[in-house]
Design a protein around this nucleic acid. Sequence first.
DNA 1: CAGCCGTCGTAGACGGTGTCTACCTGCGGT
DNA 2: ACCGCAGGTAGACACCGTCTACGACGGCTG
Lengths: 194, 194
Amino acid sequence: MDADETGLRARLVAAGVDLVLREGQSAVSLREIARRAGVSHGAPRRYFPTHVDLLSAIAREGFADLTARVERTLRDVDPDPRTRLTALARTYLDFAAAHRGMFELMFRHDLLDSGRLRLRETSLPLFAVLADLVAQARRPTDAPAAVLAGALWANLHGIAQLWAWGSLPLATGATDDDALLRAALDAHLGPAPA
Amino acid sequence: MDADETGLRARLVAAGVDLVLREGQSAVSLREIARRAGVSHGAPRRYFPTHVDLLSAIAREGFADLTARVERTLRDVDPDPRTRLTALARTYLDFAAAHRGMFELMFRHDLLDSGRLRLRETSLPLFAVLADLVAQARRPTDAPAAVLAGALWANLHGIAQLWAWGSLPLATGATDDDALLRAALDAHLGPAPA
DNA sequence: CAGCCGTCGTAGACGGTGTCTACCTGCGGT
DNA sequence: ACCGCAGGTAGACACCGTCTACGACGGCTG
């Protein structure tokens, strides 16, 4: 995306993203991405002084990707906020399931030292989209919009994580996460309209 | 807890638990716990052939601890299911906040290879307690009990995780998680009784 | 045009880690 | 008295993150 698309830094990040998607966070080492980029083991240090810096940069890509997917999804969905929220939630869960390693990494605050690269703030635009839709769908008796949005996000996130871990399928006996998704949306936003 | 409380295995796990609580998952190495137990670096291998086995054993302690805390809490709470669920939820969030490193580890399926030691099943008794209370508190028009319980658990879990990561405080501007907790319970179980 | 200097990548070293293997040692059962 | 084996020791290997000294090269200044 940046001007120097082919710069070493971009290639290193790309290799890292590829690795994390394919084999998970623990496979991402500075030396391995150097190998994949065809440079010496010390080269990445120029751009990522520390392993945490590399992982943070990769997670950043993850957030950008997820945000882009959500926006792309919402472009084709009609304006009813409840419908849009459902689509957003579906995209969130699909992303977590399809890119498990990346999803894990994105929320590993212990690995990311989230101040770095303003990483945590990277998730805010996504939350803003959700919060905006929640504000539209909110009923007068519901909790304040910010709280409602936070609680709903947490619910989506929890479903994504526990489902991926296998606990939720095991505990509920369900074979897909759709019922859970609908239960969460119904709970926070009221029963779905016909 | 086991018969040979002072056996090497128990001491190794204890050292690991201590480490994970104090410094997080990444500080737990086979060699370090060997050092703390005063044995050679190869000794742990007898009990934990692989690093994953060690981490799984530690996470198991974490689940046992959390479950015990919940049961202890519920002993002193009156029988109204909604009240009990609130207490359970509070305990869950407090545990996550107070033992962040352990909580992280417990749900890191990439580190745990959850088949090992039947680890994932270890979380089931806790879920059963929650599911039982949910079944009692459930209203006829709610989702099926298993789904409702799963969705609520996911909500708690998501709040715990995103709060610990700092995203939720950042996004909602809140300074404590109480509003979120109440919003989640109200959403899934209906507005709290007076 | 010559020379300097900063950027960027190389190469080697160090300590730490997981894992494998060969070994020792002491105790229980025959 | 002996053997066998569980349980701990010790060394090796490859890999990792990090640090440091060093080369190469290109653009600016004189």
